[in-house]
Design a protein around this nucleic acid. Structure first.
Lengths: 108, 108
DNA sequence: CGTATTTGCTACACTAAAAGTAGCAACCAG
DNA sequence: CTGGTTGCTACTTTTAGTGTAGCAAATACG
């Protein structure tokens, strides 16, 4: 398998455009959620599992690996956490949270 | 199946928090891409299919249905397009595109 | 030291989701 | 009527994700 990183082709787009790589990554189940849960603090594998509704370890491990390859998260003695770049992406998720609230309100 | 909308529980979160509903939707394959492709102009079913790397009609149809239920896209004589709310989400995707470019650059 | 717990992770059998191909009914243009 | 386009559905095959069990390594404690 080709390593997943900006510049390489991804599912549904062989241009390697960064946005395509990113959408490819985020379009996989639990990817967004994992980043979301890591915004506030570092978490261990099992803590993450709990927060993500007991996601199966198989997928969690795969997602963590992929997200690490993309340098969006890293791992140290305190568990998993966002890199600087992941943090920045987290800000976008926060903006998305704002949007989502308004979105939900306009359609009650 | 429970209709997918803010306020109702989703995969991995029974709180119905709007961000969870949104992440649940966007975390499905092709959802982000479809919104992305509809940013510029309305497209027919088959045009969308072409732009999304020949996505299978089965999934395209399902995604379109889901996105319509969430009022992010709609359908008229000119095909499928973003609603006002979808447009707003599209702006966030545009911001994400900016981010992605910088992200890719810092790791060449 | 021994042993108990927690760490990240893997194996495996199972189910759900997506892919790929074909084709249909409704609509319109010529 | 014919030929093309529309959105969509019915299949079968392949891929992705689930659920459960458990392992080796590291840490904590007596």
């Amino acid at each position: 398998m080709t390593t997943k990183k900006p510049g390489n082709p991804v599912r549904g787009s062989d241009t390697g455009r960064p946005i395509m790589v990113l959408m490819d990554m985020l379009g996989q189940r639990w990817a967004l959620r994992i980043l979301w849960e890591l915004r506030e603090s570092r978490l261990t594998f099992r803590q993450l599992q709990q927060r993500c509704d007991q996601i199966s370890p198989t997928v969690l491990n795969r997602r963590l690996k992929e997200l690490r390859e993309l340098h969006l998260i890293d791992h140290d003695g305190n568990g998993f956490g966002l890199t600087d770049q992941g943090e920045e992406l987290g800000q976008h998720l926060l903006a998305l949270d704002d949007y989502a609230k308004r979105w939900a309100n306009t359609r009650k």
